[in-house]
Design a protein around this nucleic acid. Structure first.
Lengths: 127, 127
DNA sequence: CGGAATCCTACATGATACTG
DNA sequence: CAGTATCATGTAGGATTCCG
């Protein structure tokens, strides 16, 4: 596959080095807690706006809207409007969104696995 | 292993659900572009402060300092001061830092792999 | 209910200058 | 060179209000 051949031999963050590259832009979009928590939450099942707001603890109405728009713009989340009254809007992960989810899972697992270690380090740290 | 048994059967983001949990706090620390780019850059080799500033394109002196302190506090990066004149300060990944690096690599690979797809999605998006 | 728009505040970030 | 402090500014983010 052509894409894979181009990547072989390069560090995985090769293009992220340039501050103005598309890769860096996407990386910056995605590397923030709200986006990743939304992705994780949608991974279980399709959810409505208000369900998401309830399940992603601490997120505000505004942040949820902004991040959903960003994820939709990047094609990671699909937005479906049911023209009923009151309106019903559902959000689902797309294929790339589900692929991203798999990588976020790894990050979540890392967090769980090193909780204790990090807590200890914080205790030792005297900044 | 006790830790593994506790995690089995739970979604990987189980504890991240609580906005006030330690897991969420660590996740929020780590899920930001500067921290992750620093981790990626340090993965190749130990670097001095000024080398890092040059290699992580776009990062400011201040952001680099702040993020290095945060990573050091969480025990992901080790800071070594050589008492010379001028001073020489080197930063290295710790074991948990290297483990994190592996997961960030996956995120970088995801970014590279879906670049085109995302660019297309952006073209279609009319927000 | 979902979302856009407004206003307002706090904090993140950059630029600069200073110290050891 | 590495790091801190200070100041200025932008932007993130919350609360609120209005609209379909």
């Amino acid at each position: 596959m052509g894409t894979k051949e181009q990547l072989d031999g390069l560090p995985p963050h090769a293009d992220l080095r340039r501050a103005d590259s598309l890769a860096r832009e996407i990386f910056s979009d995605v590397a923030n807690k709200w986006a990743l928590l939304i992705i994780e939450t949608l991974a279980e099942r399709t959810l409505r706006f208000s369900e998401l707001r309830d399940q992603v603890e601490g997120i505000s109405h505004k942040m949820l809207t902004q991040n959903l728009r960003m994820l939709e713009r990047n094609g990671l989340v699909e937005r479906t409007v049911h023209p009923t009254i009151p309106p019903r809007v559902e959000y689902t992960l797309t294929a790339p969104g589900r692929a991203l989810r798999a990588t976020v899972d790894v990050l979540c697992e890392w967090t769980q696995r090193h909780l204790g270690e990090i807590e200890e380090a914080r205790g030792r740290f005297t900044g």
